[in-house]
Structure formats: C-alpha cells, structure tokens
Computed example of a mutant assay.
Amino acid sequence: MISAIANPIFQRAIQDYHVYDQIDHPIQNPYDKQSLEHLLYLKCWIDTVQWHMEDVVRDPAIDPKEGLHWKRRIDESNQYRTDTVEYIDSYFLQKFQEIQARPSATINTESPAWAIDRLSILALKIYHMEQETLRTDASEAHINTCQEKLNVLLEQRKDLSQSIDELMDAISSGDKYMKVYKQMKMYNDPSLNPVLYSSGK
C-alpha cells in the first residue's frame, strides 16, 4: 500500500525540518536517490519549507520589499514542487507501463502523484494543528476547537490514504489507467508570461 510508505515518510520529513525549524537549513534526505522514498521525502520537505515561507510573507508588518522577495521564493518553490510531483508520476508511469488496461478502464480525476501531493499537505496540516492543541498559552476554547479540527484532519488522512491505495490497486489491475498532463505553468516561463516577454526579461 503506497499510503503505508508515504505517510511515515511525510511525518519524518516534517519532524526532521522542525529539528532546526529554519527555511534555509539544507535537506538531508536519508533515502536512496533512485527510490520512490527519496522523491516522497523531497516532496514533503519542499511543502514544509514552503509552508513556513507562507507564514513569513503573511506577517502584516513585513516590509514590502521583503514581502516581494518571499513571494518570488514561493513562486520558485511552487515550480520545484510541481516538477517533483511530475517526477513521482513518471515513476508510476514506468512502474505500470506493462499493465494492459481493460477495455472498460477509466481515468481518474487526478494522477497518483497529485493525490499524494494532497496527502503531503495534509500531513503538514495535521502536524501544525496538533501543535496548536499542545499550546500552554492558548485558551481552553482554542485548544478544544483545534482538537476538533485535528480529529477531522486525521479522518481525512485515513479516507484519502484509502482512496489513493484503491486507485493504485485499480491501475495495477487494469481497471483504471494513468494519463498525465504536464502542468505547463505559465507565470515562470519568459515566453508565456506577457509581463516577462514584454519587458524583454
């Protein structure tokens, strides 16, 4: 089951990041570079770093120039995140390349890797919501509200994990097939973003 592999790796990546809790602390991916585990750890590390960038840029007192700096870093991170998701899908495409889809096979609304992307983000939500329940400087009402939200997030992870596993089983059996569309993001491409190609940058 892919969720049984992914969820612990996501938890490890998040915990590893928070040992130092520094956006620019170098990643120390413990998995073999050729493995799916390596890609999953990298994916969640990117998400974790970007989560904290988003926190910084939302500071209402941030200097506009610094805010622009972080906005551009977030854009760059988003591209890196998208590229990594597509690497994960490439792994699955290769894994399932010999599977003959049944005539009745259908396509899913999203690829396996984009579903796993949601699972990685969910792991971050769970981690940070749990941290809110552990605060000693917050009101009881705040703690209770966050605990209720955490319970929902945990249920969501269980449901999403099951759905991803079922999708992978369906692809393995030929009942579903993979069809991956590259994201083709335009805002970072000098040939596609009008602001960039009009300015000659």
Rank of each mutant, 00 (worst) to 15 (best):
S3K: 05
N7F: 07
A13M: 04
Q15N: 12
Q15W: 07
D16T: 00
D16F: 00
H18D: 03
Y20L: 02
D21E: 10
Q22A: 14
I27K: 02
P30S: 13
Y31H: 13
D32W: 08
L40D: 04
C44G: 01
I46F: 06
Q50D: 13
K65Y: 07
I74C: 14
I74T: 14
D75F: 12
E76R: 06
E76T: 02
R81K: 06
D83H: 01
E86G: 03
Y87A: 12
S90A: 08
K95H: 15
K95L: 15
F96Y: 12
Q100V: 15
Q100P: 02
Q100R: 14
A101Y: 04
R118P: 00
L119G: 00
L119I: 00
S120M: 05
L122C: 03
L122T: 01
A123W: 04
L124C: 05
K125H: 11
Y127V: 08
E130Y: 11
E132A: 15
N144F: 14
N144T: 15
T145H: 09
R157F: 01
D159Q: 07
Q162P: 03
I164G: 05
E166P: 01
M168W: 09
D169I: 14
D169P: 02
D175W: 08
Y177T: 10
K182H: 15
P194W: 10
V195H: 08
Y197V: 08
Y197H: 09
K201W: 06
